[in-house]
């Protein structure tokens, strides 16, 4: 089971490190990262394997959002199926 973690906010030092550390803390294995900075605005999309999470997926969603809020980032974690259902026929 995979999740898409999107991270947006003002660019700064160590954003990738912070988010990855949180993923590691809860047992989410990062598979792919796509990241860019446009006009000082940071945007990243991570794909992570969440089948071995140490917490419930719903709680993981909350913890990631809370961790983002602490450093002024918006972190949304969504199950991959919503993208698959919408964009694959």
């Amino acid at each position: 089971m995979k999740a898409v973690i999107s991270v947006t906010g003002k660019d700064g030092v160590g954003i990738v490190a912070k988010v990855s550390a949180k993923c590691a803390e809860y047992g989410a294995n990062i598979i792919d990262i796509s990241q860019t900075v446009l006009g000082g605005y940071f945007a990243m999309i991570m794909i992570a394997d969440v089948s071995e999470l140490s917490v419930q997926f719903c709680d993981f969603v909350d913890y990631m959002a809370a961790a983002g809020k602490e450093c002024g980032l918006q972190i949304n974690t969504m199950h991959e199926d919503i993208f698959n259902s919408m964009h694959k026929i």
Partner: peptide, 12 residues
């Protein structure tokens, strides 16, 4: 991206 494209993700 391994599942769907970045554009698809951003669109959703």
């Amino acid at each position: 991206m391994s599942i769907v494209t970045t554009n698809d993700i951003l669109e959703t």
